[in-house]
Amino acid sequence: MELHYEVIPDHEIDVCRELCNELMKYQKAKAVIRPELFDSMNFDTRLVPSVHKAMHNYIVVVKDRNELVGYMYANISPKEVYRNDFATFFDMNSVQREAVGCLSQFYIKDEYRQFGVGSKLFSMCMNWLSSFDEVDDYFIFVSNGNDDALSFYQRKGFTISHEILDGFITVLHSKKVSENEHRTNF
């Protein structure tokens, strides 16, 4: 195994198409609440619009030699992006700043889990998100049935805020850690 991590520019997101579509299938297979909602979710309906609406994007792909085996997508977006026809993802009044950070998509092929890939991607994401002074709130939205992901993010310091769409999505939240604090669970 020869893993390497590569930050890619927005205009190269098409390399994530297959993995993003695998993520949507994975989430549907795990879902116990309204799995049919995933039928219309794919690279073109989830990743592309998110990249276009964001103020800043961070896309990291993981390769084993030349094969893509995982990716992570995070963004800094106006908080209003998270109020749309699908759902309102958090109480807009609870977020004081105009922008939020979000770990939006995170997927690693099964055979590459348990090798620290997730922790490495998560650490890269949080380091990137924390570099923005104008953002104090970070969110992760976990689809129902994905208990492994939920536990992973909780071990990394995120707490459950609430559920939306009758439990279809669990919202996890974390506040920016000040320079005087030290986050040891990355």
Rank of each mutant, 00 (worst) to 15 (best):
M72T: 08
M126W: 11
A149R: 11
N57Q: 08
D147W: 05
H173F: 01
K53V: 13
P78Q: 08
S123T: 15
D14C: 08
D147A: 08
S119C: 09
K175I: 00
S151W: 00
A149N: 06
I140E: 05
E22G: 01
T170P: 03
Y82L: 15
N75S: 15
L150Q: 02
I164V: 13
Y138H: 13
I76C: 12
K156F: 03
D136A: 14
Q27W: 00
F115V: 04
D10H: 03
V100Q: 05
A74Q: 13
Y5G: 02
V15I: 15
M1L: 09
E2I: 01
Q114N: 15
N127I: 08
D85G: 14
M72C: 13
N66G: 03
F90K: 10
I13A: 04
S94Q: 03
F43Q: 05
N42A: 08
D91Y: 03
M24Q: 13
F122M: 13
T170S: 06
Q154M: 10
H52I: 11
M72A: 12
R65P: 00
V7L: 10
F132P: 04
N75P: 06
Y73E: 03
F38S: 04
L23E: 01
E2D: 05
V81H: 11
G101L: 05
L23D: 01
K63I: 10
S94N: 04
Q96V: 13
K109V: 04
V69I: 09
G167I: 01
G145N: 03
L129S: 08
M41G: 01
Y138W: 06
I169F: 03
E2F: 02
Q105H: 07
I59E: 02
K120C: 07
S50Q: 14
F122N: 13
F168W: 00
F186M: 13
N93C: 06
N66S: 14
V100R: 05
F186G: 01
E163A: 06
S50N: 11
D64A: 08
M92Q: 13
S119T: 10
S77M: 11
Y71H: 12
K53T: 11
T184W: 03
Q154G: 00
F168Y: 00
M55P: 01
F132V: 04
E6C: 06
C102Q: 10
I164T: 02
E22L: 08
N84Y: 02
K120F: 02
Y5M: 04
N42V: 13
I8L: 07
L47S: 07
F141L: 09
R97F: 03
Y26M: 10
